[in-house]
């Protein structure tokens, strides 16, 4: 038996919004540690690694590890039937061919449940090595979304250049070119508005804006995003999943393979 109850149900709605445009289907691997999902997009260019920690749920029961094969578009449609302030409970019997979502209003005066068929998925799991990145950039997630959106006007790719002075995002195309430079924040009252660069060595890499724009769908989960880069390895874009109190409930990490000069 698997059962997980999340009082701040809107977090699960946001998690689904952050992956549904990038992935068609994936397995939720449920264990005592929590719910994990790892999947590549259909082009095998990007990888999503998602964790919802068991102690982030108000109730969490997982008698034995199970893998729930899910059509993510269907799950997203069902979660849209939950109000933002609903409490969401996910339930699956061992060896079941369906999963149940229960939505309770805060006053408990409206309870709905939806059953969704599970899929048999032959999932490939990739080993993600622990990496010491040459640069880790932390910035407001809204700022990163805006940069990706604005530079998409100019081209398909963005060059991210990280030096000790700050970060430069550049794009060029038939229209012309554009550059956005962010300096490290000297003094910020609010931590979530800070731009912080932790740099061992300068890095310049090129990435597809189309994928980065998919990743920015996770911005409602977190006020800050971190971009971790090293030469010739995939970029890691991480949004931490925090509740209203700021406690960590997990993360959404996206890995994107770089583009190279033809």
């Amino acid at each position: 038996m698997f059962e997980a109850r999340l009082v701040e149900g809107s977090l699960l709605k946001k998690v689904m919004e952050s992956i549904k445009d990038l992935l068609n289907e994936a397995s939720w691997d449920c264990s005592g540690n929590g719910m994990c999902l790892q999947a590549m997009d259909s082009s095998h260019v990007a990888l999503v690694s998602l964790m919802l920690k068991s102690d982030g749920f108000e109730n969490y029961r997982c008698d034995r590890s199970i893998s729930l094969g899910i059509n993510l578009a269907s799950m997203s449609k069902i979660l849209k039937c939950a109000s933002n302030d609903d409490i969401i409970t996910i339930r699956a019997e061992d060896d079941a061919d369906a999963i149940t979502f229960m939505f309770e209003s805060p006053k408990q005066d409206r309870v709905s449940d939806y059953e969704m068929k599970l899929m048999n998925l032959d999932t490939e799991h990739l080993g993600i090595p622990d990496t010491e990145y040459a640069c880790v950039i932390k910035m407001p997630s809204g700022e990163f979304s805006r940069i990706c959106r604005d530079l998409s006007v100019l081209g398909d790719s963005v060059i991210i250049c990280c030096t000790k002075d700050g970060v430069r995002f550049s794009a060029k195309g038939d229209l012309g070119n554009g550059n956005i430079k962010l300096a490290q924040s000297a003094n910020v009252d609010k931590e979530e508005e800070a731009v912080v660069v932790d740099m061992r060595e300068a890095v310049t890499l090129t990435f597809s804006l189309r994928y980065l724009n998919f990743f920015t769908k996770a911005a409602p989960l977190s006020s800050q995003v971190s971009l971790s880069m090293s030469e010739d390895v995939p970029l890691m874009v991480e949004y931490k999943i925090n509740d209203k109190e700021g406690d960590s409930k997990g993360y959404v990490r996206y890995y994107l393979a770089p583009k190279i000069e033809d």
Binding site: V45, E124, H125, P234, K259
Partner: peptide, 14 residues
Amino acid sequence: FCDQIIIFNFFLDK
């Protein structure tokens, strides 16, 4: 013009 590398090249099959 740039070529997109696929992610398979970096991570190992488990």
